[in-house]
Simulated scan of single mutants.
Amino acid sequence: MDAVRTVLFRIFFYGVSALFVLCVPVAALFGSAFLRAYSNAWAWTMQWSVRRIVGARVRIEGEVPEGQLLFAGKHESYFEALELTRILHCPATVMKRELASIPLWGWAAQRYGTIVVDREANAAALRAMMRAAQAARATGRSVLIFPEGTRVLPGDAPPLRSGFAGLYRALDLPVVPVAVRSGTVWPRKGLMRRGDIVLRFGAPIPPGLPRREIEARVHASINALNG
């Protein structure tokens, strides 16, 4: 049955996603607010199909905080990349440059207000990321980053990328860590499986902490569902 569910999910979700992407230029004509609502509709479609076709149970633990914040999340699948933008009211998301270069999709993502970062993380790339994040902060938006830098396998806990500490210092906002368990349902490779997808929001961590302390606290919090 896992194979059947996986095939049905891919046909439905990726088919619908192709239509969403193709219609992005039209949506963009109505401005950034409409484009963000359009993105939320795509995220809702993804969540619905994961629940109804794959049979996953989605559970949110902890209080989803309000206000302008820096969210730091675990990244195991595409699920949280879309779902967090929906439930966090369209934060400016830090996105690797490879995605921004995808025709049409990359253009739409930047119109939405993503923050593009080079994975090589040289000094110039980090400065550009800080400027984009500060511009987003000036508009009142929160910022979402996956500080380990990429999708990881369930249970893996690589160190945080260097850009996170710089972003934390530049934005001077409280950090809300988000632990995630999604890779057991939606693995990077192979069949999707029924099970629980969990998003766990930790308590806000204040700004202004030393780099070593903030990295240790965020790393521990986003990996709280490991094991």
Rank of each mutant, 00 (worst) to 15 (best):
D2C: 07
D2V: 00
R5S: 12
V7R: 14
F9A: 06
F13K: 07
G15R: 12
S17V: 09
S17C: 14
A18Q: 11
A18K: 10
A27K: 08
A27V: 11
A27I: 12
L29I: 10
F30A: 15
F34D: 01
A43N: 12
M46V: 07
Q47L: 05
R51L: 08
R52Q: 15
R59T: 15
E61C: 13
E63P: 09
G67K: 08
Q68W: 01
E76N: 02
Y78T: 14
A81V: 12
E83R: 08
H89W: 13
C90V: 02
K96M: 10
R97S: 15
P103F: 05
P103W: 07
P103S: 13
W105N: 02
W105T: 10
Y112W: 12
Y112M: 04
V116S: 08
V116A: 05
V116Y: 01
V117A: 10
D118M: 04
E120L: 15
A121H: 04
N122W: 07
R127T: 11
R127G: 14
A132N: 01
R137N: 08
A138S: 14
T139K: 14
R141N: 12
T150G: 11
P154A: 09
D156I: 06
S162A: 15
F164D: 00
L171T: 01
D172H: 12
L173H: 04
P174T: 07
V175N: 00
V178I: 15
V178D: 01
V178T: 08
G183H: 06
T184E: 11
P187H: 06
R188E: 00
K189E: 15
K189L: 08
G190F: 09
G190S: 10
L191M: 08
G195R: 03
G195C: 07
I197E: 01
R200Y: 14
R200M: 12
F201L: 03
A203F: 02
P206S: 07
P206N: 01
G208F: 06
P210V: 09
P210F: 10
I214P: 01
E215M: 05
E215V: 15
A216V: 07
R217H: 13
R217V: 13
H219C: 04
A220Y: 02
S221A: 15
I222N: 04
I222G: 02
N223G: 05
N223Y: 00
A224L: 05
A224P: 02
